[in-house]
Design a protein around this nucleic acid. Structure first.
Lengths: 142, 142
DNA sequence: TAAGAAATGGTACTAAAGTATGATTCATTT
DNA sequence: AAATGAATCATACTTTAGTACCATTTCTTA
């Protein structure tokens, strides 16, 4: 950002110099005022567009998106009353694993996985694992 | 976008008029050249930033992000040999719908939905719908 | 027009997923 | 110490999902 400001100052100074030169030529050669105005307009509008692009895309948009999503995460999980184990199951479900595979990964029985996922669906207020994935992403907990 | 261009033209015209007026005053009252240049610079840079914001956020950035993902999208789908109907089923699967619900939404039988999803899984090289969702997002086709 | 892909549907079967209920263990909290 | 919540597991059952095969009907394209 500091770099942008420096470059901005430099470019403005440069343009002022260019303007001065043009100003001088105007008096000497009596150039058409329209051309003069046109050049000035194009130069400054270009500068503005470039500046606007730097400022808008580089800062505002990005930071907003990434900060918010990570904060809501853990809070939402607690609010919904989702336990650690249930959350782990949720992660594996959304990674595409079957209940049996999840059981093996977590070293628990298929029964337990079903219990966890069933409770999870209640807390997420969904009926299927695919809905759970969808909702979890909507709620930013995945 | 047409509106933006119209407004742009209008504002430029307006500024030209303002410049003319200033030009006139300059000859009459012999204003300082520096002030004149400053006013011109500020006006056009402002216009440029405003324009830049419009153009960049409205077009370039968005279209870039959306066009790219949309292009890879359709190309990938074609490369995998996924048909329109299969893709529709994929979308509904990832939205969390059951096969029965998908059948109702597309006005086809449960049988057909199963056929489509089964073929889809072959093409995506997955075994389950949750894996299909995962892979589809990895491949940027969803 | 004939060949082939796409879409549709049926039957039958297997495999997962999901629900309901009850029970045990363990750690934490009151 | 008693109560509570989390994690574990089992059994039994219902519902979805998924596979395999086969068949018919559009479309599209060579």
């Amino acid at each position: 950002m500091k770099k942008t400001i420096l470059i901005y100052g430099f470019v403005v100074a440069l343009l002022v110099v260019i303007l001065k030169v043009l100003e001088y030529k105007y008096f000497v050669r009596n150039l058409s005022v329209e051309i003069y105005i046109g050049v000035v307009a194009v130069l400054f509008v270009s500068l503005g567009i470039w500046l606007g692009g730097k400022v808008n895309s580089g800062k505002l948009i990005h930071q907003d998106k990434e900060l918010k999503s990570r904060e809501i995460n853990t809070e939402q999980v607690k609010e919904l009353g989702i336990s650690k184990r249930e959350f782990e199951v949720l992660e594996l479900i959304s990674a595409g694993y079957s209940n049996q595979e999840i059981a093996e990964k977590l070293f628990i029985s298929l029964s337990t996985v079903k219990t966890h996922s069933s409770n999870l669906f209640l807390k997420l207020d969904v009926k299927r694992r695919t809905q759970a994935i969808q909702k979890a992403k909507e709620l930013n907990i995945l």
